[in-house]
Design a protein around this nucleic acid. Sequence first.
DNA 1: AGTTTTAACTTGTACGTACAAGTTAAAATG
DNA 2: CATTTTAACTTGTACGTACAAGTTAAAACT
Lengths: 236, 236
Amino acid sequence: MKKKRKYYKVQEYIKKNIQQGIYPIGSYLPSENDICKQFDITRTTARKALDELLKDGFIEKEHGKGSKVLERSKSLGLLTVKGFTEAANHKIKTVMLQEPKIDNWSPSIAFPLKQDEIQAKCVYFQRVRYINDKPIMLEHNWYAEDALELIKPDDFIEGSFFKTLSQKYFIEIKGSKQELRAEPANKEVANNLGLEEGEAVLHISICFKTSNPTLNLYSELYCNTSEFPIRNSYFL
Amino acid sequence: MKKKRKYYKVQEYIKKNIQQGIYPIGSYLPSENDICKQFDITRTTARKALDELLKDGFIEKEHGKGSKVLERSKSLGLLTVKGFTEAANHKIKTVMLQEPKIDNWSPSIAFPLKQDEIQAKCVYFQRVRYINDKPIMLEHNWYAEDALELIKPDDFIEGSFFKTLSQKYFIEIKGSKQELRAEPANKEVANNLGLEEGEAVLHISICFKTSNPTLNLYSELYCNTSEFPIRNSYFL
DNA sequence: AGTTTTAACTTGTACGTACAAGTTAAAATG
DNA sequence: CATTTTAACTTGTACGTACAAGTTAAAACT
């Protein structure tokens, strides 16, 4: 029944081209009139497609110039992976402490699992993120084993799980729930982040929803924020 | 030049009626056709106005039924006042430690002030938020004295600064920048939140942008997250 | 050569029309 | 009376047209 939504097809086509780099970041999309010709639609429909991409943060429009492709991933609550990779000017390093493996769900996951998920096993992986060779964040990540194949470390695009999802599997992050707590570091966290036990760390629990309804990502993050606070901004 | 944007006038008219409770939360707006008649516009234009309100989180649309007025303030990054007041089922109390007064800008504000602001004085007020009679959050708030009059405590609508802004001054929050740090509590924080010095607290620095370009709000918050973690969710 | 004007692009706003599709309550049916 | 059908609403999609307004580079002018 949704086959009739022409604008949706156009939207998905353009989105795919952005994700695959055919329309590179910073470049301008074909003009609205070009899109009309290409898909044999009216400008109303083409604009509707672009409006959706605008809302999703894929493009911005410049009056008189065109639609420019944006860097993806703004406005995902706080500290998406972007919040981290974005710490520009700084040397980022990621060390995989535990490569993705089939495992049982951990009780340390803060958010309740769905029925479907709890019955399957899960894929688990653990990483430490460094800035300027200082360990800043300890990451635990889980997702349902039957929702997505086990991704090997070599398949990570630029070390980013989200980029891999987007570019290899065309899965987008649709939203997230998060909980934040200031906690004293336990032994594991202290060891991995080079802190004393009991020092204050920021504990962030996240449940990411994706465009694949069966795939949720669960992350438990422990951050040393003394030097690099977590930043977040949102604009309507 | 912007006078010509009919949809904007309609949008602002409806927004005002929502803010003033003429279109109450949960009710349905007049239908698109009614709006057309009322403003002598076509449905295209009426829908454009509603689209904007949809984007801004004022309404949601229900196919075949109508446009429903939403509770305001979703998706403002994390922990807007809503994030707090929302802790439903719990008894919330707010104690004003320092009523709004003219003061000098404090160096403890994490975000850089604008040139215009730094030259003026500011209005400062300090509050402690309680949940179930336990002090949970210590708040410091500042805004430029020449951007908005000094609001007296009695004028706070339901104890909420944001509701007051919205309903009395028609000023909306347009976005925010935030920084999060896990820190050991200092003496002032520990005293006000009933903690030991050195216990981990969540320090949140916020700069709110408003629909009044000259008015920014600066807040430094200190949270005891051990019992009530800060929640945040975002959906595209 | 340097400046101004123009023409050809771009997106923004708004008109009007038509039909599809979801919702609801009244009317027709058994 | 209970069920089904219909009619009258709602929003969703898409057509086509026209002109306004911002941008840019080529053309015309001084």
